[in-house]
């Protein structure tokens, strides 16, 4: 049980590092998905100790569904950004500053 929590903690940290360092918007989306998966791992680990594991697993199904929606909308933003600025490099998104 604790081994799964340790694993998901590590994965969350890796995902966070990815989101923080990558300049490419698609890699940020990737890092975000890694963090979400770490969360799902935790949900399942705790569902095994809960009185009704089936309910815990429905949470993970919902979380997978929401993560898929989030990836879809995130990609829509990236494509809109690509069409407007012809780059997916987040550091170039500074037009608000001007």
């Amino acid at each position: 049980m604790t081994r799964f929590l340790v694993l998901s903690g590590l994965l969350l940290a890796i995902g966070a590092y990815g989101v923080m360092t990558r300049r490419n918007a698609i890699c940020t989306l990737l890092g975000l998905e890694i963090m979400l998966n770490a969360g799902n791992l935790n949900l399942i680990a705790f569902s095994r100790v809960s009185p009704s594991p089936a309910v815990g697993q429905t949470f993970v199904l919902f979380s997978i569904g929401i993560a898929a929606c989030e990836a879809a909308v995130g990609l829509a933003l990236i494509l809109a950004m690509w069409r407007r600025y012809r780059t997916v490099d987040i550091d170039k998104l500074v037009s608000l500053k001007e």
Binding site: T2, L5, I14, A16, P51
Partner: peptide
């Protein structure tokens, strides 16, 4: 930041003892 995050999570995870036994 990532290391600090990982450290705290692992510390909390190691300290946690589940109340009921794990059903396999």
């Amino acid at each position: 930041c990532a290391l600090v995050l990982a450290g705290t999570l692992i510390a909390v995870a190691a300290a946690y003892r589940p109340a009921t036994a794990v059903q396999s």
